[in-house]
Design a protein around this nucleic acid. Structure first.
Lengths: 126, 126
DNA sequence: ATCTATACACACCTTGAGGTAACTGACGTG
DNA sequence: CACGTCAGTTACCTCAAGGTGTGTATAGAT
């Protein structure tokens, strides 16, 4: 009907779906958000502080995935103690902009969600 | 920096994040997509056929959540055997349009993801 | 009397996501 | 010599997501 995928191959569709799933998940989304807000490269420990509730393990793990997806860049400065900085790639920045649009739309329509308003009478469950 | 959430309260932000997380997950996204493509109300069993790989349990469960979020409408026709139809609400349709934009953007930039191109030399891991 | 179709609910079980805690390595400092 | 710092890694454990398989109500068809 809306046919919003007409020009996509199944392959593309599946891949995009996967990416959207991964990027829109809890930690990835928050990490990208934090990196964007910071506006500058952040060290591992700064991220730990700002991404509230994340465990060290999940942070490294998620950062690796984001790096593999080309959304962030990891830069290791071979000093002692080691310094590692993470920053958004242009792609990551752009993706976040796209997601932000969706995000904003949702916030604007928050009142409509959670709508038991839309319930038809016939919908009443037994 | 990009400050794309400046006008949101923490409350709104959290709620939107949650919604985005839920809607962009595997099954919800696929179900909404199928319902949109169909362009007409679909019965439970039709959904089972079209959402490949989903289990009956997950289908009912996800449908309930989508209903609670106001994205779909469930209509029970008290016949025998029972007939139940699911369709997108306007909100569901609109949300899907928003997501579709993101979706399309990703497909257009698929080549950029999975980019080990963006790797700096300094990034080389030990 | 039995069988079929529909849309589930429910009990059971497996798997994997993710948490916690301890360990590492290299070097500067007291 | 012991200690602290940073950015992890590794082993272990838990819990919840999700799969499977079965039960149920109802009425018409055979």
């Amino acid at each position: 009907m809306f046919d919003f995928c007409s020009s996509m191959t199944d392959e593309q569709d599946a891949r995009a779906r996967e990416l959207i799933e991964r990027a829109a998940a809890k930690w990835p989304l928050r990490i990208l958000h934090v990196l964007s807000d910071a506006g500058a490269p952040l060290r591992f420990s700064r991220l730990m502080e700002r991404v509230e509730g994340i465990s060290q393990k999940m942070l490294t793990q998620t950062l690796r995935t984001l790096e593999r997806d080309g959304l962030i860049i990891r830069t290791l400065y071979p000093e002692v103690p080691p310094r590692v900085e993470y920053e958004l790639t242009p792609l990551g920045r752009d993706l976040l902009m796209q997601v932000a649009a969706l995000w904003r739309w949702i916030v604007e329509h928050l009142d409509d969600f959670d709508a038991r308003k839309a319930v038809k009478l016939t919908t009443a469950r037994a």
